[in-house]
Amino acid sequence: MLKLSNNVAIPDWELQITQIRAQGAGGQNVNKVASAVHLRFDVLHSSLPPFYKERLMALSDQRVSKEGVIIIKAQTFRTLEKNKDDALRRLKALILDAVKTEKVRRPTKPSKSAKKKRLDKKTQKGRTKALRGKVQL
């Protein structure tokens, strides 16, 4: 189960993870290529909320096809488990980036206590600077 938020998760049966072994792999990269992973996720036939599906389909990313299939390839690590985890992490990041909406903050005025605190701090700094270098008796 890939958890996206408190109320949204993707069940394991919707994720298709296949191990890819390139033909004719040899030399130093044989372990790296043998542990490569392709993760396939069908957006349209998933249990995601409609808002998530719309945002993912509108995304201009080469990993999302026109049919609504996301394919993520991972082969940076030598072990199969780490590549699976990497692919799942990248899928989660892709989905969360697609559905992220910016918060609109209203500009607020500083309160009276905040203004007073700022002024006190400012005057205290001024007194300290004024006394710097002077000998006190």
Rank of each mutant, 00 (worst) to 15 (best):
M1P: 12
M1Y: 07
K3E: 06
S5V: 09
N7Q: 03
V8A: 09
A9D: 11
D12W: 03
W13E: 05
I17Q: 05
I20P: 05
I20T: 06
A22R: 15
A25R: 14
G26I: 01
V30P: 02
N31W: 07
A34T: 13
V37T: 05
V37C: 10
H38P: 11
L39M: 04
F41A: 09
H45D: 09
S46W: 00
S46A: 00
S47E: 00
P49M: 07
P50F: 05
P50E: 02
K53D: 00
E54C: 09
R55C: 03
A58P: 14
A58D: 14
A58C: 14
S60R: 15
V64R: 02
S65I: 07
K66M: 02
K66R: 13
K66C: 03
V69Y: 03
I70T: 06
K73N: 03
A74G: 01
A74Q: 09
T76G: 14
F77T: 03
F77I: 03
L80D: 06
L80T: 07
A87N: 00
K92S: 12
I95P: 02
L96M: 05
A98D: 04
T101C: 13
T101P: 06
K103H: 09
K103C: 13
V104N: 13
R105M: 10
P107S: 15
S113M: 12
K115T: 00
K117G: 04
L119D: 15
L119A: 14
Q124E: 13
Q124H: 12
K125Q: 14
G126Y: 02
K129R: 08
A130D: 13
L131W: 13
L131I: 13
R132A: 04
G133L: 01
